[in-house]
Write a protein that binds this DNA or RNA. Sequence first.
RNA 1: GGGCGCGUAGCUCAAUUGGCAGAGCAAGGGACUCUUAAUCCCUAGGUUCGGGGUUCGAUUCCCCGCGCGCUCACCA
Length: 496
Amino acid sequence: MSDYEREARQQRVKALREAGVDPYPARVGPHEPIRAVLDAHGASDGAALEAASPEVAVVGRIMASRSFGKLMFLRLQADGESIQVSARRAEISPELFQFIKDLAVGDFARVEGVLWRTRTDELTVDARAVQVLAKALRPLPEKWHGLTDVDARYRQRYLDLLANEDARRIALIRSRTITAMRAFLDARGFVEVETPVLQPLYGGAAAMPFTTRHNLYDQELYLRISDELYLKRLVVGGLDRVYEIGHNFRNEGVSRKHNPEFTMMECYQAYADYRDMMGLVEDMFREIAEKVLGTSQLTYQGVQIDFGKPWARVTMRDAVREATGIDILEAVDLAALRAEVERSGLDVEDAPSWGVLVDNLFSETVEPKLLEPTFVTDHPLELSPLAKQSPDSPSLVERFEPFVAGMELGNAFSELNDPEDQRLRFEAARRARAAGDEEAHPLDEDYVRALEHGLPPTGGLGIGVDRLVMILSDASHIREVVLFPHLRAERREEPH
RNA sequence: GGGCGCGUAGCUCAAUUGGCAGAGCAAGGGACUCUUAAUCCCUAGGUUCGGGGUUCGAUUCCCCGCGCGCUCACCA
């Protein structure tokens, strides 16, 4: 590939070295944040600055450069803040002036100088001394179209962050969201823990795992698809309120809402049930939105969302009945439900079991309409091997999923703590597995043993953090909220 | 995995019916003491994603491959 520009930049680096200047020095001279300079002098007018001639030193990346012969302007940017720098031939030596001229857009520098205001009243540091901090060998993206190539934006996120304000905004919203989530849980007495990512047996969700191996123990391992079973073991152990924010890995499709590696917050609260967890979600989302955005009201992809109000609550049965006229508790087995679906003329994919058919009905007729924050409750038992059976209906469990803007943001239930029931559920899943359902939950003997020692009644909740950040940042694709999303392997560029 | 679309200079994009591959920005040289996408002159920069085919001639048409996007399926 052609590297005309790169060679020119390498020449500059070489010239600096030959002149005895380290282009990548180990020490940065004294300086203050650009924000501090703006705060201290942003209100001073030109006359006041001229009288005081305040001296400042700032550091940053050179984002723009405009030269007028004996005068030049640079824009220095650091940590999202920027300030203009000037160099005036009349004020400094010819050597220093040339040195500044030889700096390139993309380079890092420290500038000591005197504050003044230009004719356009812009606060500007007039350089008196300049230290090169790091030379760039490749250029920044084009300055006003920015970087729009989607693939490049994800593969070289650093360029995206430099060129596109929105990328930075989303990264900061993500950080503040997680900070606010921690603060919320910490304040309620939840203990943050870390459980294994490498698991000898995966569980806690219905999904295909990534597999790996530990050489020394000659052991097959899985990257976790969920941390649920470990967190509940901790509740058995007396950590009554625990949570973990971490990555789960699911060896499945990639879509607007799915990244194979994603961030999940799971929390478990002893002596609580799924209704308590609904209250927790309402409080948590309201508090996070207020902390991150300053308001509980927001717009996601044109949809108005208000986390200040209580969420709508609807059972899966009522939601499906309202959308289709079919009562899933009247059509109690697969044959009956199939007949109902057929009679209704709905375009719903057939399924191998009653529970899956209910889920298909729900996904296709209800889910896209759930724009307002809504808890959908009481799912088929068969789809929920870790949730407690509903006292009102043997075919349902105490479970809910929070939906916002048609997107499922999590999952929660009253945790199944009856070890014998748990064993039966696992065995049912094992039969489904034997019948070809690759995603059926594997039997975890050690987990059943833990339940046998006693798990108190416990409410559990998982929240898809990436999707929550999508909602809060109005991002349409999960890749926008993951700094380095999963991509196909790149063909390696030839080394230079 | 299926369908549709896209791939041209470092970046953002053009290129008539199939007829000399271009512009802006960035880069190099020059002019310029008030710019904010500065302006002006000059220069350089291309395996048109890769391979094959049709044709006198392919960025353009066809086939295969690669990559990316959208979408469907999958993902409770």
